[in-house]
Amino acid sequence: MEVKDIIKEENLAYKKTKVLTDNEMHYCPGCTHGVVHKVIAEVIEEKDIQENTIGISPVGCSVLAYNYLHIDWQEAAHGRAPALATATSRLMPDKYVFTYQGDGDLASIGAAEIIHACNRGENIVVIFINNGIYGMTGGQMAPTTLEGMPTSTSPYGRDIKLSGHPLKMTELVANLPGTTFVARHSAETAGAVRKLKKAIRKAFDNIDEKKGTSFIEVVSTCSSGWKLTPEASNTWMKENMFPFYPLGIIKDE
């Protein structure tokens, strides 16, 4: 059978969801953001909640996330997305409100906002992209940077005595009674993407049941910041990030 005979509408097996816009993403080649955006968009399409979903984008590489998903968006100040989400969800309790935040945004400058939103059990979804580095500003050390990991502000590797320990936000918020579902995933293989999608679907389903905060960390790569190819980044992530940030469901109530 010729390729041209296979490429027909009735044989379609996988295509880009309509909830993604046609804008070309500004992310570097191989960036995990693109995969996570897509998975969120697919969940929104499958749940048929495009009209009722409000995204809150952060400051960081994904500051322009609003260019890529065909939904209403608010662009927050650095770290404050959970505060915007709190108000949005409280004022429009029937909407699906999610924040999309990187590790600098969520774990550093926005530590107070995320802890308190989770502790209040705001009925929102939090997507937390952890690549252990500040991408947008040029590869500086993040709270999540691993010990010994070189960045532009830890050029000799993160020194615990100088800069403290890498912060495990996900374990931290799992301890808060306001969170209902807390999980850590990745998106480097098709299998990982399928698991991630299942988790994000569950998180959005939790909003229907008004169960409180669902928090999903995605251990991610930053090829440009890590100065590796996308493929080598995935390998580095598996070898170095996964042992410290183990994947799995941490809390499901």
């Binding site: 404050r80 505060a83 915007l84 108000a87 949005t88 409280r90 004022l91 906002e113 308190h116």
Partner: peptide
């Protein structure tokens, strides 16, 4: 009317931002 005691003035004002973005009087 929704009333929230925020964790800080920073958060309170950013809640104001989120609420205002919804077209609500905040």
């Amino acid at each position: 009317m929704v009333v929230v005691q925020a964790e800080s003035e920073v958060a309170a004002a950013n809640m104001l931002y989120g609420g205002a973005a919804c077209g609500k009087k905040v």
